[in-house]
Amino acid sequence: MAGNTGKPGQSVAERVLAVLGAFDRGHRALTLTEIAHRADLPVPTAHRLVGELEKWGALTRRPDNAFVIGRRLWDLGLLAPIQSGIREVAAPFMQDLYAATLATVHLAVREGTQVLYVDRLSGRASVPVVSRVGSRLPLYATGVGKVLLAHAPDDVRRAVMSELRPITRHTIVAPGVLDKQLRQIRQQGYATTVEEMTLGACSVAVPVRNGDRVVAALGIVVPTLGRNRPTLVAAAQVAAQGVGRTLQDGALR
């Protein structure tokens, strides 16, 4: 009879999901022992499941024998309708925006109280950018995040306001100040940030609408805004309007 392979009554699927769930933003690389501990599984069981997941491509073993999430899981994630559909629609407009600005261009959606980056084109300027495709960052400290937060339901805004934390010395952490800024974003149609997420990086972002709904945000990251702000805002708005028109034509339901 086989030995203990996990919690009593736990299915194979639950154990596999526990292994994958061991990874998060704070634990991007884990050893086999760490995976077993975080998944609450015996090491032999974790070893078998990790081996099968590695063979399938869900996990990848690094040279130091730590495991990271594999490309195949990311490929599956891109099949989610909101991500795959809007990425495909937005791609040519992002290319146009990059050509017009030569800046880093982001496409993002809201996921709970965070902003999820679903596409990115890297600009030519040397600007510290912490976002990556698939990464999640705070809504309140990023340009695309502020746009999405400004148009989020009241309960989402309240939840974000209750957990404001400084990321740089420029991060807005006063709820009243942030709330006023969100009202301005809704009125003027764009958001800006100045070194609020990363020192040395500023951003402009605008909403992408599908009819009356804000479904995503387009953002540009630059070293400084200065006199270029109106030009950057205008370029981003033209691109966002193009995405919105395509969405309304039925590219994304």
Rank of each mutant, 00 (worst) to 15 (best):
M1L: 10
A2M: 11
A2C: 03
G3S: 10
N4G: 02
G6A: 09
G9C: 14
E14P: 00
V16H: 05
G21Y: 14
A22S: 10
F23D: 08
R25H: 12
R25L: 13
G26V: 00
R28H: 00
R28K: 07
A29C: 01
A29T: 05
T31E: 03
T31W: 02
T33A: 12
I35T: 12
A36Q: 06
A36D: 04
R38I: 06
R38C: 08
P44Y: 06
P44V: 09
T45A: 13
R48P: 00
V50H: 11
K55T: 11
T60W: 05
R61M: 10
R62M: 12
D64N: 09
D64E: 01
V68K: 08
R71G: 12
R72H: 13
L73W: 05
D75V: 00
L78F: 12
L78Y: 07
L79E: 07
A80C: 02
A80F: 09
I82H: 04
Q83G: 03
S84G: 14
A91T: 09
A91C: 03
F93R: 02
M94E: 05
Q95T: 15
L97K: 01
L97H: 02
Y98V: 02
A100V: 06
A103L: 15
V105H: 01
A108C: 11
R110V: 05
E111Q: 14
T113C: 10
Q114F: 01
Q114L: 02
L121C: 01
S126D: 13
V129S: 01
V130W: 09
R132H: 12
R132C: 13
S135I: 02
Y140P: 11
A141N: 03
V144A: 14
D155S: 15
V156W: 09
V160Y: 06
E163Y: 04
E163R: 15
E163K: 12
E163D: 15
L164W: 01
I167E: 07
P175S: 07
V177F: 08
V177T: 15
L178K: 06
D179E: 14
K180M: 07
L182G: 03
R183I: 06
R186E: 15
G189M: 08
Y190R: 02
E196Y: 12
E196N: 10
L199S: 13
C202D: 12
C202G: 10
S203Q: 08
A205W: 08
P207C: 09
N210T: 03
N210R: 15
N210W: 11
G211P: 04
V214G: 08
V222D: 08
P223D: 14
N228E: 11
R229F: 04
P230F: 10
T231C: 02
L232W: 14
A234W: 07
V238Q: 09
Q241W: 09
R245Q: 13
L247I: 08
L247W: 07
L247V: 07
Q248F: 00
